[in-house]
Design a protein around this nucleic acid. Structure first.
Ligand code: SF4
Ligand code: SF4
Lengths: 140, 140
DNA sequence: TTAAATGATACTATATTAGTATCATTTTGT
DNA sequence: ACAAAATGATACTAATATAGTATCATTTAA
């Protein structure tokens, strides 16, 4: 049971890659080759990131993508929300008001606590925090 | 994106239910009706729990299921492992040794930290801990 | 003017999750 | 004895999510 899917992983790796180019335009061909990811698949991901204004696209020959925000304004949580939807540890029936045990349910309370913790930790991961320590980037 | 699936939720709810019967045999018909869950679906779940020795089955008329362990020896983590496999926050390519960024990857380190935290918290949830405070059960 | 890029979108394939159905076997209660 | 009610085993279907491919249109720098 994996929690983060390939779209998110590839999106993140692409963003790290683009960030390291310091504003230079990066094409999908370039990215795909260097990251060993299918070009067609990566294109789709970058197109979504463009629509979501995480990156800006430059059309035409020698076009490609650049970051639309600075790295400390891009979060892993954004990517998860875009590609996988909101994180729900347990898709609890309390919310749908149909659970016969809801009045006395300790599970839902415990789960909500853990869910909050998980979300807090993931929210804390910015693109910038993933670049630090690498050398090529400027710490923020 | 929900993390815990219906098998696990239903299994847990069934176990809570069975635990509250204090050793009395509970049939799937009974469970299904009281929890408003499809009987055929629940049967399959209970059969798996039986194979995994979480519950014991009693065959024949007036048969059903009882817990095979005491509630503080049954963990949510067991159910997740049985029905969804091992929790992996990020199914990282480092483990498969094919990631071009692995040497300098901060993401995988951060993810491992969060994954450990998540697993620790979930490991901490026993069936007993979900019964406490209800009144019908004996705290352990 | 053409090569190389993105935009938009439709399509296919695979895996996971959810749910149903059937027949065999066991055992209690009458 | 025997029918009713339960589980065991297993095969099947349906729905959804994930992963990946393909195509045509448009843009633009070389
Ligand atoms: S049993 Fe608890 S966790 Fe499960 S659906 Fe009901 S309220 Fe939610
Ligand atoms: S980029 Fe990091 S997290 Fe992603 S596969 Fe490579 S090592 Fe793992």
């Amino acid at each position: 049971m994996k929690i983060i899917n390939k779209n998110v992983d590839y999106a993140l790796r692409s963003l790290i890659h683009i960030a390291k180019e310091n504003g230079q335009v990066v094409s999908v061909s370039n990215l795909a080759e260097r990251e060993k990811i299918s070009k067609a698949f990566l294109r789709k991901i970058l197109q979504i990131l463009n629509k979501e204004k995480i990156v800006n696209s430059i059309k035409g020959k020698s076009g490609g993508f650049v970051l639309a925000k600075i790295p400390n304004e891009i979060f892993l949580m954004d990517l998860i929300n875009i590609f996988q939807g909101k994180i729900k540890l347990l898709d609890c029936f309390v919310k749908k008001n149909i659970c016969p045990q809801k009045k006395e349910c300790i599970l839902s309370k415990k789960m909500e606590k853990i869910e909050k913790m998980l979300i807090f930790e993931i929210k804390n991961i910015s693109l910038a925090s993933l670049l630090n320590g690498d050398g090529k980037d400027k710490p923020i």
